[in-house]
């Protein structure tokens, strides 16, 4: 049920990010969420995009790109909404590698993207707590 995140390896140089975003835009894809992790020489652009397959096939010759299943947990766009999600995962001993968030298309609707080692287990834990998660199919909504 998890959603697919794309990750791009970019050199830490001017022009790299604009190239990548231009290529995604050229695929007619919408970037729903993104974050960048940076090291000295390089960065990793992580993004949730629409038309993931098309983006990957168009970008794979020009960029190092990889697909990773991540969990997108739905929450209300209000103070305190993230806490029960993290609390549930903490109790289940799920370790989070990294996370970022985006707002949904509905009113006061937000999602937190969680990179974990076992997305299936993580989703089961969340569902057991009544927390909804997104699927690729639900993403373009």
């Amino acid at each position: 049920m998890a959603i697919t995140q794309i990750s791009l390896f970019l050199m830490n140089q001017p022009g790299q990010l604009v190239d990548a975003v231009g290529a995604i835009s050229g695929a007619g894809s919408n970037i729903r969420a993104m974050s960048i992790a940076e090291a000295n020489d390089f960065g990793i652009l992580r993004a949730i995009v629409t038309d993931t397959d098309k983006v990957c096939s168009l970008l794979k010759d020009r960029f190092l790109i990889t697909r990773t299943p991540v969990v997108a947990a739905k929450m209300d766009d209000r103070s305190g909404a993230l806490y029960p999600i993290l609390s549930a995962l903490n109790k289940a001993n799920v370790n989070i590698e990294y996370m970022y968030a985006f707002t949904g298309t509905g009113p006061e609707e937000a999602y937190v993207v969680l990179r974990v080692s076992d997305p299936d287990t993580t989703e089961s834990v969340l569902h057991a707590h009544g927390i909804q998660t997104l699927s690729d199919e639900g993403l373009s909504l």
């Binding site: 990750s7 390896f9 990793i44 190092l64 790109i65 990773t68 590698e97």
Partner: peptide, 15 residues
């Protein structure tokens, strides 16, 4: 140069 099959989304893995 790192190749496609070595690339990971995890910074810690690359480091």
């Amino acid at each position: 140069e790192v190749s496609a099959d070595q690339f990971s989304d995890l910074m810690s893995q690359i480091q």
